[in-house]
Simulated scan of single mutants.
Amino acid sequence: MSQVGIIMGSKSDLPVMKEAAEILEELGVSFEIDIVSAHRTPEKMVDYATTARKRGLKAIIAGAGGAAHLPGMVASMTSLPVIGVPVKSRNSIDGWDSVLSILQMPGGIPVATVALDGAKNAGILAASIVSTFDDEVAANLDKYKASLKEKVLNTADELKQSGYKNI
């Protein structure tokens, strides 16, 4: 049974949204992934959102470009946490339309919003949600964050040893 759902408005969002799948895979979080358009397949969107909890999901990551209605519409139909990923699409206004569409939700319908094209962080946030009741995922997150620290410290040591021109 999947713990996290990853949905996107169209296939063109997949290059961004696959980063959420990749980090969830790395952290040992089960997920499902699908294309669910708020505008072109509204019935599928309603079914997805209203059955998500029964299917065992603990969080939903929803990516969309342009008007970016998918995250907010899904959040309006489920009590699960929804993480919105604004996607800079070809018909986008530099991505700002997507960011603001997801960020500016009305009171009572929260959507956690990550940076433009920030699907990796959405995956990490979803894993953090899952980690509140899954000790294995919590341990994997701790290891992941420790590896980030180690990477920075190694780079700092390399800078000290080699100088800024040689890195």
Rank of each mutant, 00 (worst) to 15 (best):
M1F: 07
M1I: 03
S2I: 02
S2G: 00
M8W: 02
P15K: 04
M17D: 07
M17A: 01
M17C: 08
A20S: 10
I23C: 07
E25R: 07
L27H: 04
V29D: 12
S30A: 13
F31T: 04
F31A: 07
S37Y: 06
T41K: 06
K44I: 13
A49F: 09
T50F: 13
T50L: 10
R53E: 15
R55A: 14
L57H: 07
L57A: 11
K58W: 01
G66A: 07
A67I: 05
A67G: 12
A68E: 13
P71Y: 10
G72I: 04
V74M: 11
S76Y: 07
S76I: 05
T78V: 14
S79Y: 13
G84M: 08
V85P: 06
P86N: 05
K88G: 05
S89K: 07
L100P: 04
M105I: 02
G107N: 10
I109R: 07
A112P: 11
T113P: 00
G118D: 05
A119K: 05
A122Q: 02
I124M: 02
L125E: 03
A126H: 00
A127T: 06
A127C: 10
S128T: 03
S128K: 10
I129W: 00
V130D: 03
V130M: 05
F133C: 08
D134G: 02
D134L: 01
V137C: 00
N140M: 08
N140C: 08
N140T: 12
L141W: 04
K143R: 08
E150G: 00
K151V: 00
V152P: 03
N154L: 08
E158L: 15
E158S: 11
K160V: 15
K160L: 15
G163D: 06
G163Q: 08
Y164Q: 06
K165F: 15
